[in-house]
């Protein structure tokens, strides 16, 4: 389905992002050109994944794999087809059965050199507010200690299309790419380092709270 994915991004996603929204990308040079790598972004909107994927050229798009909750994105046949074939997601089961290794296929994708998109906050939450990072990403970093994690701070998409709303309203979106980091020796220190990167990127924007 590579052609379908490429067509979807070329004809719909990119024109929409360019005209209706507009993306202000800072530190583009820090984006990893090839995998294995993990893009870790804060999560405000369904548009987050589309924006992050559209940062890559069409020819490379199939190597960019969003990790997404299986219970949400595989909830019915139509959503599942779109998620698996167009967005090319790696489904993650949020409540694994005992004995199941929920990260196995994700680590396999990393080993194959894919670029993963991960939202360590877990869900979209309140629009334009960062929530606490969940430690799932630390497990992944521990298992793949040399793979760079590139933090990306997103702003504005929560205004354009927040959770629970279907009508997109035009706003410019900001995407600030941070310095990459790798496994820090322990889960706690890795999470702290990632949180610090996000903090730094957020301060760079000096955005007003959206109440």
């Amino acid at each position: 389905m590579r052609w379908a994915q490429a067509a979807f991004f070329l004809l719909l996603v990119r024109p929409f992002l360019a005209l209706v929204l507009g993306v202000n990308l800072r530190h583009a040079a820090r984006l990893p050109q090839s995998g294995p790598a993990i893009l870790a972004a804060n999560h405000n909107s369904h548009l987050d994944t589309l924006l992050l994927m559209s940062l890559y050229p069409l020819a490379q798009l199939h190597r960019v794999r969003p990790v997404a909750a299986a219970d949400y994105f595989l909830r019915n046949r139509f959503v599942a087809w779109f998620a698996l074939h167009i967005m090319h997601i790696l489904p993650l089961s949020r409540r694994p059965r005992p004995g199941e290794k929920p990260l196995a296929h994700i680590e396999a994708a990393l080993a194959a050199g894919d670029i993963l998109i991960l939202f360590p906050e877990g869900s979209r939450g309140e629009p334009e507010k960062r929530s606490a990072l969940k430690s799932g990403i630390a497990h992944l970093m521990e298992d793949a200690p040399t793979v760079p994690v590139v933090p990306i701070y997103l702003h504005g998409l929560g205004k354009a299309l927040p959770r629970g709303d279907w009508l997109p309203v035009p706003f410019f979106a900001d995407a600030f790419v941070g310095e990459p980091l790798v496994w820090q020796g322990t889960r706690a220190s890795s999470m702290q380092a990632l949180e610090a990167r996000f903090q730094q990127l957020e301060e760079e924007g000096r955005f007003d709270a959206w109440e």
């Binding site: 507009g22 927040p162 309203v169 959206w210």
Partner: peptide, 26 residues
């Protein structure tokens, strides 16, 4: 006009409650 208004709404503080109001403004 559209680009200028979008830029304006993106840099000023807006209220969450006004999201759809801004849609009408566009």
């Amino acid at each position: 006009s559209f680009l200028a208004l979008k830029e304006y709404f993106s840099i000023i503080p807006t209220r969450r409650a006004d999201r759809r109001v801004l849609f009408w403004a566009y």
